[in-house]
């Protein structure tokens, strides 16, 4: 029975090809630093999963955001765990992605033929920071509010277009319900979609070129 189902699926999916192309790839000798890319991916998936669960109770409105988070922390079974993982995962992801970037820099992995991998990667880093920035406002507590006031104010100092940037970020002149909604939208839809897409490109490029080898004396 299982064999039959497997055969049917295999005929259509082609597990063999998948295995050859995805798993059975040759690689140069690596070391533990090579694990940081997949660690970043792991954290991205964890953030995605816990983030989706948080939206079950979280309510993105100035009247309810704070109370709904309090409820997640104190009223819902394991809410503290889900939010705790998401909270610490955010910091950890920034850290790990940054170290991953440094390692590919120091091992000169960004040079031919992996230039585009680096370019996409650097965009991933910026998007990760964007996730941190937009997520920070969502609890709508004192810390979140004031940090966002100041950070968006920084955008406002650019000569000429500062006022425009500030209003575009805040959705108006003040940090308000509109700011919260657009940060929420960016945090759960736009930035993750961009991240997921670019991670796909990043991974494709890695499979195409293979993991780089650590440079020798004569490289």
């Amino acid at each position: 029975m299982f064999k039959k189902i497997y055969a049917w699926l295999d005929e259509r999916v082609g597990f063999d090809g998948l295995y050859k192309n995805l798993l059975d790839r040759p690689e140069p000798h690596g070391n533990w630093w090579n694990t940081l890319g997949s660690a970043s991916l792991f954290l991205f998936i964890m953030q995605g999963a816990t983030g989706i669960f948080l939206t079950v109770y979280y309510t993105p409105s100035p009247d309810h955001a704070y109370d709904s988070i309090q409820y997640i922390m104190n009223g819902v079974a394991f809410g503290w765990l889900i939010r705790g993982i998401h909270h610490w995962g955010a910091s950890l992801m920034v850290l790990i992605v940054f170290i991953h970037m440094l390692r590919t820099f120091f091992s000169a992995s960004y040079k031919y033929p992996r230039e585009l991998t680096w370019i996409v990667g650097s965009l991933l880093f910026l998007l990760t920071l964007g996730m941190g920035f937009t997520g920070y406002l969502l609890p709508f507590n004192q810390r979140a509010y004031w940090a966002t006031v100041v950070a968006t104010e920084i955008g406002g100092v650019v000569p000429g277009i500062g006022d425009f940037i500030l209003k575009a970020l805040r959705g108006g002149t003040d940090v308000s319900a509109l700011t919260l909604s657009r940060f929420f939208s960016a945090h759960i839809w736009m930035l993750p979609a961009a991240l997921a897409g670019l991670i796909g490109v990043h991974l494709y490029l890695i499979m195409r070129h293979g993991e780089s080898a650590y440079p020798d004396q004569d490289d």
């Binding site: 999963a49 669960f53 079950v56 394991f78 809410g79």
Partner: peptide, 13 residues
């Protein structure tokens, strides 16, 4: 470790 708490989390109400 994640899945079991999540079930509790979702059905809590």
């Amino acid at each position: 470790a994640l899945g079991i708490p999540v079930i509790g989390y979702l059905i809590d109400p």
